[in-house]
Nucleic acid binder design. Structure first.
Lengths: 152, 152
DNA sequence: GCTCTATTGACAACCAGGTTGTCAACTCAA
DNA sequence: TTGAGTTGACAACCTGGTTGTCAATAGAGC
């Protein structure tokens, strides 16, 4: 009960994310894509958005390239991704989203969008847009190292 | 760029949570509480809020009681928690937050609140309150109409 | 052309925070 | 008194990260 409003805010952010992801993962499972995790979906999205190698994917996701390589291996295992030798650089393996991968992305995006639409219906599109605006500001700048030191 | 608005929303939720937690963990480290994770802080909060045993903590956090027990062991290791035999039930070990634990909670809460205050200064208190209202609605119910599998 | 440095992907060991399964001790209602 | 449910402990395991190391390769500087 003495939970701070700030901590409550943080908890709600995580809880809401989790709730959305749960629905999307369940829907993917239901539509023939079992075993997909949020990590997979976001990684495939990043690859399709331009990350062309494990190193690039790691940078794009903000994780080590070893972690990215593990995710890539999992995506390849699930046939969402093909790896080909890069003709211009023998060190690299180019990443190509397969048709099945594209289908998974489509379902994921559709389900995420359905959740957002549902949220808009609950609170009104105007409130949701304001919400997203505030969220972008909050998420955009995470500096404020000294903002916390005082105010004690 | 073809990231769906819904997925973008989810990504921002997680990103904002992570950004907040990073600041809080860094501040705790700076103020003499190294090695504390978000899990620790939220668990201690839950214990102080009334979770009196590993089983209760697990229920309260939504994880297995074995996972809760691991967190409790970590908190005890860090001297944030004492365990005592429950006089009324020999199966249980009562959980007591130590003075140091209380100090850690205070710093965490203060830092979380400072972040929230900072957010309010950026977007206006009214916008933040609307934001939190929408967030509570979104987080509270995670049902989807055609994409629904089960609520939870 | 040669060499030095940076980058890449692979591999291994490890860690944190979860999971399930199992167990003995214990409580409590029938 | 007994039997079902709860509790904490322990073990094995999984996932998604981490760091460290390595050989192969690319590319710039000379």
């Amino acid at each position: 009960m003495n939970t701070s409003s700030g901590a409550k805010l943080a908890g709600l952010l995580l809880g809401t994310f989790d709730a959305m992801v749960d629905v999307v993962v369940a829907e993917l499972d239901r539509e023939g894509h079992p075993g997909v995790t949020a990590t997979h979906a976001f990684a495939l999205e990043a690859i399709d958005d331009g990350a062309q190698s494990a190193s690039e994917l790691g940078r794009s996701l903000g994780v080590s390239r070893q972690a990215a390589a593990k995710t890539i291996a999992a995506l390849e295992e699930l046939h969402y991704l093909d790896r080909q030798d890069d003709p211009g650089d023998a060190r690299r393996k180019r990443l190509l989203v397969t048709a099945r991968g594209r289908e998974m992305m489509t379902i994921g995006a559709r389900t995420f969008d359905a959740l957002r639409t549902q949220a808009a219906e609950q609170v009104g599109i105007r409130a949701l847009e304001n919400f997203e605006e505030v969220l972008a500001i909050l998420g955009g700048k995470s500096d404020s190292r000294e903002a916390s030191t005082r105010s004690s």
